[in-house]
C-alpha cells in the first residue's frame, strides 16, 4: 500500500475547555481528494490551522511527505510543498494578480534574500506566472491589483498562487465559498483534474461538490473524526446522519 502524503495521528488541540481537535487521525493518499465535512464549529478550521502550521497541536504528530512536520513553521511547511488556499481570500492587496503569483513562484525557487535583479524583468517569474493565470482563467486580469478583483476572481487567484508552489498536497479551505452555481461547477471540474497533480484535502460546505469530487470523506463533529469512508458509506452512516445531516431525516 502506498504511503500517505499527509498523516495526522492522535492530534489534539484545546482552547481553554474547548477541545477543538480531539485525537484526530486522518490520512491523505496520493491521487485522492479527501473531503473534510462537518457542521459549523466542528473544528474544521482548527484542523486546517494545525495542518498548515498556524497552530501547534497539544498532542499528536503530523507527518507530511515522509517527515514529521509537527513543530515546523507555516513558511517551512509551505516550502516542503503544502499549498493552501484560505477560507476568506487572503492575497497581497496592492499587488496585481500577476505579482501575487510571482511571489509564490519566487518563494518556490528559493530564499528571498536576493537584492539586485528586478523581479519585473525576471522571465523565470513572469513567464510561468502568466501561464498559471491562464490556467485558472485569469489571463486577461494579470495587471489588476488583487484588491479590485471580483470575489470569484480572487478565489481563482488563490488557486493559481497555490498551484505556483507546485505543492505535494493541496489544502483547500472552502474554495467554492461565495461562488455562483456556474462558478462552482467550473471549479469542480478544475479540481477534478487537479488530483492527478497532487492530492487534495478539501474542506467544503457545498455538498454537490463534495459528493462529485471526493474519493473519501471524513466527518468531523466536536473536534472528532466520527466517520471516514467513501461518499456512499458516509451517506449511509447513521452516526453521520445524526450528527450532521440532521436527526434521521433525509438530507
Amino acid at each position: 500500500m502506498a504511503e500517505p502524503v499527509l498523516e495526522l495521528s492522535g492530534v489534539s488541540k484545546s482552547f481553554g475547555a474547548l477541545a477543538a481537535a480531539d485525537n484526530v487521525a486522518l490520512t491523505l493518499m496520493p491521487g485522492e481528494i479527501h473531503a473534510l465535512i462537518g457542521p459549523n464549529g466542528a473544528g474544521k478550521s482548527t484542523l486546517m490551522a494545525l495542518i498548515s502550521g498556524r497552530h501547534t497541536p497539544d498532542a499528536g504528530t503530523i507527518r507530511f511527505a515522509g517527515r514529521d512536520i509537527t513543530g515546523l513553521s507555516v513558511a517551512r511547511r509551505a516550502r516542503l510543498g503544502l499549498g493552501r488556499t484560505f477560507q476568506v481570500s487572503s492575497l497581497i492587496p496592492e499587488y496585481t494578480a500577476l505579482r501575487n503569483v510571482m511571489l509564490a513562484l519566487q518563494a518556490r525557487q528559493g530564499h528571498p534574500y536576493r537584492f539586485v535583479r528586478p523581479v519585473r524583468r525576471d522571465r523565470s517569474l513572469t513567464g510561468p506566472a502568466h501561464d498559471l493565470l491562464a490556467r485558472v482563467g485569469l489571463a486577461g486580469r494579470a495587471g489588476v491589483p488583487s484588491e479590485t478583483l471580483s470575489h470569484g476572481e480572487r478565489r481563482l487567484l488563490e488557486l493559481a498562487v497555490a498551484l505556483a508552489l507546485a505543492p505535494k498536497a493541496f489544502l483547500l479551505d472552502e474554495p467554492m465559498a461565495g461562488l455562483g452555481a456556474d462558478g462552482a461547477r467550473t471549479l469542480t471540474a478544475f479540481l477534478d483534474g487537479l488530483r492527478a497533480e497532487a492530492p487534495i484535502l478539501l474542506v467544503e460546505h457545498d455538498m454537490d461538490a463534495v459528493f462529485a469530487l471526493a474519493d473519501r470523506v471524513s466527518v468531523l463533529a466536536s473536534g472528532q473524526v466520527i466517520a471516514t469512508g467513501t461518499v456512499d458509506e458516509i451517506r449511509a452512516d447513521p452516526q453521520v446522519r445524526r450528527a450532521y445531516l440532521g436527526d434521521g431525516e433525509e438530507a
Binding site: 492575497l91 497581497i92 511571489l103 528571498p112 505556483a164
Partner: peptide
C-alpha cells in the same frame, strides 16, 4: 528585487507571505 517583493508583501499580508 525579490527581497523588496517579499518585504512589501509581508507588510500587506504576513499570513499570505508565510503560506507561500
Amino acid at each position: 528585487a525579490r527581497f523588496g517583493a517579499a518585504l512589501m508583501a509581508i507588510r500587506q499580508n504576513p499570513d499570505r507571505a508565510a503560506a507561500v
